[in-house]
C-alpha cells in the first residue's frame, strides 16, 4: 500500500478551492497552506498562456526531510504517508531546506495565536488551532485523519470541481491513479533528486 496523488494539469482551472478546503479541513491560520495552486505564465504577447500548478507535500518514498530530521519527528507510515510528530519537532528547519519541493511550513512563535479576525478567535479557530503548535514545522498530511477514519479521499481531492486531483494506491496496478499514470505517462516532479515522490503530474 502506498498512497499517492495524480494531478492533471490540463484539468486544473486555478480556482484555489483545494487550498481553501485544505485550510478548512486542517484549521490552518493565516499564511499557512499545506497545498496551493501556483501560476506559471509563459510566452510573449499576444501568445501568452497561464498554467496552474497545484503543489503539496510529495510524500516521497525516499524523503530527504525524514533523512535530515535530527529528532525523528518526521516519520514514514507503512502506507507511504510522511508525517510530522508535533511533540518531537524542535523547529530546526533542516527539513524545510532539505525539501526539494519547498512544501514545508514553519509556524513562527506566536503565529497561531492570531486568527483571521485579529487576536479574538472564532470558536472554530479556537478548536482547530489547538491541534497545532507554534515554533515547529508542519506540512500536508494527505489527510491522514480522514484515511484513518476509512475515508478514501483527501479534502482537496473531494473539493476539486475539475476532478484534477485523484487520490489512490500507487501499489495497486488497477487503481485509478495507477491506470492514469500508465495511460498518460505521469511525471514525478524533480525526480532527478532521487526522492521518488508520490505525486504524479499529467501534462
Amino acid at each position: 500500500m502506498r498512497y499517492g496523488m495524480v494531478i492533471d494539469l490540463k484539468r486544473c482551472v486555478g480556482c484555489q478551492a483545494c487550498t481553501v478546503a485544505c485550510k478548512s479541513e486542517n484549521g490552518n491560520g493565516p499564511g499557512i497552506m499545506y497545498t496551493k495552486v501556483l501560476d506559471q505564465v509563459s510566452g510573449e504577447y499576444p501568445n501568452v498562456r497561464k498554467n496552474f500548478v497545484p503543489v503539496l507535500c510529495n510524500h516521497c518514498k525516499n524523503a530527504p526531510c525524514q533523512r535530515v530530521c535530527p529528532t525523528g519527528a518526521t516519520y514514514k507510515r507503512e502506507d507511504g504517508l510522511v508525517l510530522v510528530d508535533h511533540d518531537k519537532c524542535m523547529g530546526c528547519r533542516a527539513c524545510y531546506v532539505a525539501c526539494p519541493y519547498n512544501n514545508r511550513i514553519y509556524l513562527k512563535r506566536g503565529k497561531i495565536k492570531v486568527g483571521y479576525y485579529g487576536k479574538e478567535m472564532t470558536p472554530y479557530e479556537e478548536v482547530k488551532y489547538a491541534e497545532h503548535q507554534d515554533g515547529i514545522v508542519e506540512k500536508c498530511k494527505f489527510c491522514s485523519h480522514r484515511i484513518d477514519e476509512g475515508l478514501t479521499e483527501t479534502s482537496c481531492v473531494q473539493t476539486c470541481p475539475a476532478d484534477a486531483r485523484i487520490f489512490g494506491d500507487l501499489d495497486d496496478s488497477e487503481s485509478k491513479v495507477s491506470r492514469l499514470i500508465r495511460s498518460r505517462g505521469g511525471r514525478q516532479p524533480l525526480c532527478e533528486d532521487d526522492t521518488d515522490p508520490s505525486i504524479y503530474y499529467l501534462d
Binding site: 535530527p70 529528532t71 524542535m90 512563535r109 503548535q133 515547529i136
Partner: peptide, 15 residues
C-alpha cells in the same frame, strides 16, 4: 536562540 522549540534541543540527538 534559533530553534522554534529550544527546550526540545535534546531531542536533536535522536537520529
Amino acid at each position: 536562540l534559533y530553534l522554534g522549540r529550544p527546550w526540545r534541543f535534546w531531542r536533536g540527538m535522536a537520529r
